[in-house]
Amino acid sequence: MSESDAVDFSLVGKVALVTGAGRGIGQGIALSLAQAGADLVLADYDIGIAEEAAANVRAVGRRALALQVDVSEPASVSAMIEQVRERFGRLDVAVNNAGVVSLGKVDELPVSEWDRIMNINARGVFLCCQAELRLMREHNFGRIINLASIAGKVGFPALSHYSASKFAVIGFSNAFAKEVAREGITVNALCPGVVGTGMWRGEQGLSARWAEPGETEEQSWARHQAALLPQGEAQTVEDMGQLAVYLACAPHVTGQAIAVDGGFSL
């Protein structure tokens, strides 16, 4: 490999947008991108936690803009991109991370809950990609990273609606990547495994809801790591950030759904 072919993992001079950036994986990815040199737009439904995440980015010496967005609403997404244009004039990296989860078996799941999950997790990715593409095309460059899940590769009971939304993200990302492959724009899906953020931990997390009788949340969390993950330990937000930085820099990786899951999925 020649020196000119080597991937440069610096994002200095780049502008990155992360949705759902106020907590968990989104916050971790935003900080990783900032540490690699990018300036950040941190968008979240809750502007308060977006502002807190922006402060962490500024602490590592990068510019940061916090925005409120509802990714399921076209007008809100368009307004977000216009604010990115006004503040930075360009968009190089977009991480469409905003998402929600709930539990419900197919025969008990309200249609309204199916629609809520799909509107945020799948429709939200579509709307963001549409808007981001318009700005990226102005500079013939872009790196789009859509957050899917191992539940987008393997179904889980009581998560049919969530799995459906994440399978949709993977299929959409692969098709979209082929549409823009000759425009200097890559599109990939990042599939987190078992990460100790709000989806899994705490009173409302999956480890608490899936606890066996008499089992504490902590014991359930340990059991699920041991049972689901060949490596036997959970992944971290920093793991997700490392892959996001790579995908933000790699010019010839596109249309992929890459899992960071300790060996759980194919």
Rank of each mutant, 00 (worst) to 15 (best):
A43R: 08
L103V: 12
R63D: 12
L40I: 13
D115W: 01
V95F: 09
K14F: 01
F88H: 09
V71G: 01
I47M: 15
D8V: 04
E51P: 00
A34L: 03
G104D: 04
R63V: 03
L109E: 14
F9P: 09
A54P: 00
E82T: 07
K14A: 05
Y45E: 11
S10Q: 07
N56Y: 00
I120Y: 06
L65T: 00
E108R: 13
S76K: 05
L31N: 07
E86K: 13
V60G: 06
D92P: 00
G28A: 13
A43I: 06
N96V: 11
M80N: 04
N56M: 13
Q35V: 06
V12Q: 11
L135G: 01
G13R: 09
Q27M: 13
A94W: 06
S4W: 05
A16D: 04
A38N: 12
A122M: 06
A131E: 15
F88R: 03
A38H: 05
R123H: 08
L67F: 07
G20R: 01
E108M: 14
I25K: 02
I49K: 12
D5W: 09
I47N: 11
V84S: 08
G28T: 15
S76Q: 10
A43S: 10
L33A: 02
E51T: 08
F88W: 06
G89I: 07
L42S: 04
